[in-house]
Design a protein around this nucleic acid. Structure first.
Ligand SMILES: [Mn+2]
Ligand SMILES: [Mn+2]
Ligand SMILES: [Mn+2]
Ligand SMILES: [Mn+2]
Lengths: 220, 220
DNA sequence: TTTAATTTTTAGACAACTCTAAAAATATGT
DNA sequence: ACATATTTTTAGAGTTGTCTAAAAATTAAA
């Protein structure tokens, strides 16, 4: 009983939504993520439920079963490994990789992923700082915090992004912020929570819309 | 007007058949290659004709238009570049690559192929000795001949295979024959046209079923 | 708590691709 | 040339995944 490309995309969407909300995943939330109508989602939920990937109770939302979670995480593993490949080996920038990885993540070949993993020297994180699940579906949770929660005087290292849209990544590139960049919080405005940092010996101010989309780790 | 994965597979099949037969490509020949029923093929031929990829006259068979030929050759280019990648970088053997390449050839990203080509150092041939079309659809024809047409006393270098099924490639591996292997024709049986060679300082006999599937180039 | 707004599901339909069965066209053999 | 065999096309239908419109269930508001 194989998994179609469309089913894989639904499972991935359900996984990502459940990571955010931690409650039952709603039909509408999936519809928005997949860019389909709610009625289409309902149809698919029945199929995924029949196949044992989700538990689905009418009007109550869905949850991934262990089988569904493993399938979703395996696709995410492939997606992120391919993103590393594109950036490390094929000169893609981090804002160019997502659409291609969306296609490559559906290639079915266990040997391919095993060898790609080794070829890339077993990376633990993708170009956006997201952890790469291991072959058993384990994900290393990092102690990252959202930049908007940082404290004045603290020094932090950029470890990932929340929004990995091309627009946002281009903004970061323009201001020379990438994974690994260090920043020190100089000031936080009470009014709009905009923050001023020292980055690369320069001062820079970011709105909350920005700081809400950057993950950092506090440096000792 | 995009090309679906299925349409791509039909175009590729038509291209490969037309390379063999050089006459109009028949519905049945396509059906056999695609592993579908003739009625399904007829449906698809109408669609490909409407889209301008083939010229199709009922009951008369089909031919690729220039647009169709370029599309087919571009897929073949991608297929063969991925095969090189799998063998050169990911430790696949030449009998393992085809099925994965069948999937990878449909990934749509011009930058991906451009960069992959450069990463592989602009290979001209795939692991089976088949030429890789360039980005403009040009294919370098080699002066290869089929091994069964070789002459007693001549020395030849193996440059490709006709049949790239796993079974055949495993046979070649077992007898240590690969692209580049040199062989000298010692004898040809009149009765069944089986041929005896010197290969790697050893003598070996092959049936016509084998020699009909190996391409060689005569060494001066 | 009754009404209104929102969410979700059903009903019916369509596009892409496939099939079986039967009809039409073409090719082959005597 | 005529009958037979083969190839190809049509007719009708099934599957997957999508949609719109309308009904049913749930949630929010008055
Ligand atoms: Mn991505
Ligand atoms: Mn990523
Ligand atoms: Mn191949
Ligand atoms: Mn090949």
């Amino acid at each position: 009983m194989s998994v179609t490309l469309t089913e894989e995309n639904y499972l991935k969407a359900i996984y990502h939504i459940s990571q955010m909300t931690k409650t039952d995943v709603s039909t509408n939330a999936i519809a928005e993520k997949i860019d389909a109508k709610a009625s289409s989602v309902t149809d698919m939920l029945k199929k995924l439920s029949d196949k044992g990937f989700i538990t689905y109770i009418k009007y109550k939302g869905v949850n991934l079963t262990e089988k569904g979670r493993l399938t979703a995480v395996d696709i995410i593993r492939k997606h992120r490994l391919w993103e590393v490949f594109l950036v490390d080996k094929l000169n893609f920038s981090w804002d160019e990789v997502h659409d291609v990885a969306e296609q490559l993540e559906h290639i079915k070949s266990p040997k391919l992923i095993k060898e790609l993993d080794a070829f890339l020297d077993f990376p633990t994180h993708d170009p956006h700082g997201d952890p790469i699940p291991d072959k058993d579906g384990q994900i290393k949770r990092t102690d990252k915090i959202i930049l908007s929660k940082a404290e004045v005087g603290g020094t932090y290292k950029c470890v990932g992004v929340q929004d990995s849209s091309t627009d946002f990544l281009k903004y970061l590139d323009k201001h020379q912020i990438q994974i690994g960049t260090e920043l020190t919080v100089k000031d936080i405005e009470d009014f709009d929570h905009s923050m001023t940092f020292t980055i690369h010996q320069h001062n820079m101010t970011m709105s909350k819309a920005i700081t809400n989309n950057i993950y950092v780790k506090k440096l000792q």
